[in-house]
Amino acid sequence: MKLEKRIELQEFALRVRERIVPLASEGGCFLGASLSAVDMLTYLYTSFLKIDAQHLDDENRDYLFLSKGHDVPALYGIFVELGWLEPERLKNHLSVNDHIYWHPNRHIPGVEFHAGSLGQLPAVAIGVALEIRLRKGNNRVVCILGDGELNEGSCWEAFLVAHAKQLSNLIFVVDRNHFQANLATEELIPLEPLQDKCQAFGLQTYRINGHDFDQLEEVFTQLELNQGPSMIICDTIRGKGLPSIEARADRWFCNFNLQEIADLLDELHQIKQADITSQTIVAR
Rank of each mutant, 00 (worst) to 15 (best):
N97I: 09
D52K: 06
Q166V: 07
V142I: 07
E8Q: 15
G77K: 01
G77I: 02
E260Q: 15
P104M: 06
C143G: 03
S117W: 03
H103N: 06
Q166E: 14
C29M: 08
A184I: 08
D235N: 15
E186K: 11
A123R: 01
L9A: 10
A125H: 00
F113A: 13
N182V: 09
I51A: 04
K2C: 12
L121R: 00
A181D: 11
P243A: 11
A123E: 01
L121M: 04
L64K: 05
D71N: 13
A115F: 01
P229A: 02
A181P: 01
E4I: 12
F201N: 01
H163F: 13
G146W: 00
G148T: 05
L35N: 03
K91Q: 11
I261P: 00
K197A: 08
K136M: 04
G210Y: 07
A200V: 03
L223F: 06
I171S: 06
E131N: 12
Q10S: 15
K165E: 11
L3V: 05
T236I: 09
D71Q: 14
V111A: 01
I271T: 07
E149S: 06
K5Q: 15
Q120S: 12
A283R: 09
V72F: 01
R176A: 06
E224H: 13
H178C: 13
R140L: 05
P190S: 13
I7K: 14
E157V: 05
A115E: 04
F48E: 05
F12C: 04
